[in-house]
Design a protein around this nucleic acid. Structure first.
Lengths: 192, 192
DNA sequence: CTCACTTGTCTAGCGGTGCTAGAATCAGGT
DNA sequence: ACCTGATTCTAGCACCGCTAGACAAGTGAG
């Protein structure tokens, strides 16, 4: 059944092209510019083709989110493994997280701001999302402090990072003192 | 010029009706349901009337955001003034903030998630927004700790609250341990 | 090699969106 | 009672997400 295999391969390639193109448009012009028409034109297929791969625009956003989660997890692990000592590790983690959000705003939005139809904090949460949280937990768990549940601590730290990321990018916080905010956050929250 | 005064009064009343109706629809069915057609029909005028009051939908969102900011500031001040001692005050502040976000999700979105065309952290930031931040600063400044700029501390604390609020509401954090997260946050961030 | 059939893709269109030009209507002053 | 200017509406633009049904291309059987 080599023919069928080839077709499946081509189908998978096209699906990846859709996700990559959606992400590209979103990074360049924002998610509002990612319309099914524009996306279809860019991949040089007609609109209905998109719906043979995804249920709708929401699922495309979800696919970008999963891709982003995997990348973020990798970035976090790379940064933390290069640092020794809990304190340095947590600081590196925080910087990397905020850096990721700043450099890939569209992906970050797909993950946390937009509705990609993904389950969170539940049984059927997709693996990449669980893994991204796990990457946070690995470094943050060791500075949770005694008597504090590592998962709960990670949630709080994560929420703080998320707040900084979104408020900064939305112009709610001046970017100038970003570094000072990170240091204050790590100083206070992490128990070294 | 009594005629003109009456007209201006009626115009102001209608403008307020638009904002109130937009908010009502948003609270009931989400901001996606707030379309110019639906909004126009509800206020029993045609669409173009909306554009004689606001530049566009964005400005209507902005108007709701300003209204919300004033209410939030009032709620925060009410809660903190009823508490004595910095620690109790900060906890009350955090709870009130999160409670406001949970009970008025549409207004909260207008303030911090959607684009209402408002300036933040800048010279021309509208007064209600500045005042809401000031309300936070009043209680948080006293627990910033030595050598830490009160404004910077407030920003970090606020970001953490914002992260908790948005991630919880988006289903990214399980609502069950919300109270524990607040306590952990106050314990660690605030210097009593 | 031909032909029916499945599979895949496209054209065209639905009901909706934010927004606006120009027609129609209403109220005010003379 | 009429003219004039402000106000409001009707109708329409270009776009959106999504889909039914026409059409073409590739597949396997005879």
């Amino acid at each position: 059944m080599s023919v069928q295999e080839r077709k499946e391969r081509e189908r998978a390639a096209r699906e990846h092209l859709i996700v990559a193109t959606a992400r590209e448009i979103a990074e360049q012009q924002g998610w509002d510019a990612v319309t099914t028409r524009r996306l279809a034109e860019r991949i040089e297929y007609s609109q209905p083709v998109l719906y043979s791969h995804f249920r709708g625009k929401r699922e495309i956003i979800g696919a970008v989110a999963l891709e982003g989660a995997a990348e973020m997890a990798a970035a976090l692990r790379a940064a933390t493994s290069a640092a020794d000592g809990p304190r340095t590790r947590v600081t590196a983690l925080a910087r990397t997280y905020l850096d990721f959000a700043e450099r890939h705003p569209a992906v970050y939005d797909a993950m946390f701001q937009l509705d990609g139809g993904l389950a969170f904090a539940a049984e059927d949460t997709p693996a990449p999302l669980k893994d991204a949280f796990a990457a946070l937990l690995e470094s943050l768990g060791e500075v949770a402090g005694e008597g504090v549940h590592p998962g709960l601590f990670t949630e709080v730290f994560w929420a703080a990072l998320h707040g900084l990321a979104t408020l900064t990018r939305a112009g709610r916080l001046p970017p100038a003192e970003a570094e000072q905010r990170v240091e204050l956050l790590v100083d206070r929250l992490a128990v070294i």
